[in-house]
Structures are given as C-alpha cells and as structure tokens.
Write a protein that binds this DNA or RNA. Structure first.
Length: 317
DNA sequence: GCGTCCAGGTCTACC
DNA sequence: GGTAGACCTGGACGC
C-alpha cells in the first residue's frame, strides 16, 4: 500500500527527553514495529493508529534539555484537520512526550539500584504500543519460549500476514490486523508460523478484539487495575501477559526476570524460578510502589551497565 | 545422530 | 479456591 498523503507538525516533549534512547531502546525494544528503520537520528516506522495504517518519520531537532521533534505523517487518504489534531495528540501520548520524569527521578536518586540506571539512561521516556492486538501477540509469543524463538514467531506472523506500506522512499511491513488474523484457521496458522498451542489463543483474542473489545486509547483511559482486569478477559492473557500489555505499566516478572530481580533484591537467583515469582513481584511493588513499572523498564534496558555498577552478573535478555 | 528435558504462562479439569 | 497436568516447538545436553 502506498501512503502518498503527507502532513507535518512538531512535538515539544517534556524535558529531559532523549530522542534516540526513547524511540530505539538499548535492549532492542522498538517503538511500534519490528521492521522500523533508524538512521542518522531519524526514525521511519509504520503502525495502525486508530485503525488506520500510517507511516511516520520522526526526527529530533532539539536537545535532551530542550527537546523538539519534527513529525511527518503519511496516510493513504488525506486527513481532515480534526483527524490531524487527534492523531497528533495521540502520538504525543504514545511516544511519552507528555511524561514528566521528575518525580520518578526524585525517588530513583535515593535508591541504591535505580540511581545508576537513571544516570545511564537520562531522558529515556516510556512509550506505548499504538495497536493493542500487536501487544497481545507479543505477550502470547513470549510465553513458554526463549527470546530467540519468541522473536522468530513474531517475525513469521508479520512476514506472513503483515501489510507492506511504502512512504518517503521506504518500505516497512506493519503488523497484521486483528481482522485478518481472526479469519485464520488456528491449525494452519500454527503450522505456518511455528506457534504451537499459542495459535488458537491469538486467533481467539483477535476475534474478541474485532467484536468490540476496548482499543488502546480506551484501555489507557481506565484505571491501572481496571485495565489489567479487562485485559485478562482476552484468551491467552493471564497475569504476566496483562502486565506486559497494560499501558499503565505492571511489574511483569517471569522465569527470566525473576532471576534478575531475585539477585537485585535478595543477592541470589531463586532456586526454583516459578515458585519465586510472587515473592519478587511483591518486593518490587513494596520498594517502588507506583514506579514499579518505570523501575522495571529502566533496569531491563540497562542490564549490562548495571552489572558493572553493582559488581554482580545479571542475566541478559 | 538420537532421545530427553525444559523454557519470558495459561487454561481447565479435577478435587 | 487450589492445584496438577496438558499444551507446541526447538535448542541444549548427554550418550
């Protein structure tokens, strides 16, 4: 699909805002799409925003202390002025431009673990997925598989069922729509993308989303607990997956992160990882309260440096 | 090579 | 309500 209609605007995020750290996270987390391109300070990405396929070109024209981002937004059909205004407002939320880090940093400076990560990653904002279904697919693919296999499954789904978009001289494959996946036969889907039992969860979740499940904007407007509760109504989404999808942020402790946080909190990895998950989650919430997600997010992006700062070996993702 | 084990969880049938 | 056991697949490991 060619996205030939272009509109331009600027965003002024709340400082400090490090553009590169925010749109291209050190641990390899992308902004919206696994196929996005980052080159020479510019990001080209594509996604579904408010059920519309859009191409985006984002470029920093400011600094960490005085941030400004120039945005070019590409669509198949011309946008009305109200649509442009709505998309700009939503994009600001999605890239974390309105997020004020001062309170988190104030708490983190007094914490013996977090003081290191906020220094290493000063100005990194938390971003949100633009399309709920994409987060659901990710959270289900992460279950019961090592990271490399999860990435292979995600890649196969996007390659086989994603939508190719062309804009600004770039071609990017956007994640598949829930509508397309809802029509698939789970057995064929599983075989094509090596998904195993996860295929039926993804297809059933897609059906539920298509039939009127709240979209990402509606989930963002809910309270954190309400959002979490709602998300677990999706097939294949339990406590862990809901913590990953929840735009309010959870504390998604799994068989990998329980080792990392077990070592940070108690000085050693738990003997039986799955049995220690609840204890580690509880300790994280007790220490960091409403900032538990931000703490998780910063630590996950800075494991290599944190290992050096603290003189302990932390398992990388 | 071949067999076995188990992993960034969730669901369901039992009790 | 709580708790085993099943669920796909592929890489690591021992032989």
């Amino acid at each position: 699909m060619k996205l030939n209609n272009k509109c331009k605007f600027e965003i002024t995020p709340v400082p400090p805002f490090d553009f590169e750290l925010t749109v291209k996270k050190p641990a390899g987390w992308t902004l919206f799409n696994s196929g996005e391109i980052f080159h020479d300070g510019t990001l080209w990405t594509a996604s579904r925003i408010q059920n519309r396929l859009v191409g985006l070109k984002l470029r920093s024209i400011g600094t960490v202390s005085k941030p400004r981002i120039r945005v070019a937004l590409f669509t198949a059909k011309p946008l009305m002025n109200t649509e442009k205004t709505d998309l700009k407002a939503l994009l600001m939320k999605l890239i974390g431009a309105e997020q004020d880090l001062r309170e988190f940093y104030g708490m983190a400076r007094k914490d013996k673990i977090l003081k290191h990560v906020i220094e290493d990653l000063y100005g990194m904002h938390d971003t949100q997925s633009s399309y709920l279904f994409n987060s659901v697919v990710l959270s289900i693919c992460l279950q019961m598989a090592r990271m490399d296999r999860s990435m292979k499954m995600m890649g196969a789904i996007t390659r086989s069922f994603g939508d190719k978009v062309e804009f600004d001289g770039k071609t990017i494959v956007a994640e598949p729509s829930a509508e397309k996946i809802a029509r698939l036969n789970p057995r064929h889907f599983a075989k094509k993308c090596n998904l195993g039992y996860r295929a039926k969860y993804i297809v059933e979740a897609a059906k539920k989303i298509v039939s009127g499940f709240p979209d990402i904007v509606q989930v963002m407007s809910m309270s954190p607990d309400e959002a979490r509760q709602k998300l677990t109504e999706l097939p294949g989404v339990g406590d862990y997956a809901a913590d990953i999808i929840n735009p309010h942020g959870g504390f998604p402790i799994d068989a990998w992160s329980v080792d990392v946080f077990g070592k940070l909190f108690f000085g050693k990895e738990p003997e039986i990882a799955r049995d220690a998950i609840e204890a580690v989650k509880s300790e994280g919430r007790k220490r960091w309260g409403k900032f538990a997600w931000m703490a998780f997010f910063y630590i996950a992006q800075d494991l290599r440096n944190l290992s050096k700062h603290l003189g302990i070996e932390l398992r990388l993702q």
